[in-house]
Amino acid sequence: MREWLRDREHMVRMGILFAGALAVFLVARAVMVPKDFGTYGHFRTGALADNMAHPLVFAGRQACGDCHDDIVASRKGSKHEQIGCEACHGALEAHASADDPSALKPKLPDVKTICLVCHRENVAKPAGFPQVDPKDHGDGGPCTSCHNPHHPEIS
């Protein structure tokens, strides 16, 4: 044995060095891999919670309807019934989740521009969609002088 080892000793030393490095790596790996890694797949489970934790900015129409049920009722049967409130009124989670929502009164949309975001003429829009050229539609006044935005049909 001693005789065998004599001319291989340096190899054994190198082998021990490699084995040591491998052991250090395995220990470091065991310590450093996030504990919640791999439960549902190759990722950190906590990343799901991280993504969930992002704050809301848009409240969602249901939250609006909780208080503004009169508006919901007024939109019944109109072409605009299905449109989310925040499509025109903007993101309002701050208003909806405030202790006193009336203190954070949202600004009304500017009727001179808001209607045309959707209804300005454009050849790429679906053919049946109501579109206008503001220069030759109406009398130059605000859209709301003829149309109720919550129920735009002129009866």
Binding site: N51, A53, P55, F58
Partner: peptide
């Protein structure tokens, strides 16, 4: 896009769907 994961896991729809006037 995270498909608004913070919204859909709370029973809300995504922000883009919420405001799409045409559905």
């Amino acid at each position: 896009c995270s498909l608004c994961y913070h919204r859909i896991t709370k029973g809300l729809t995504t922000a883009c769907c919420e405001v799409c006037p045409m559905g």
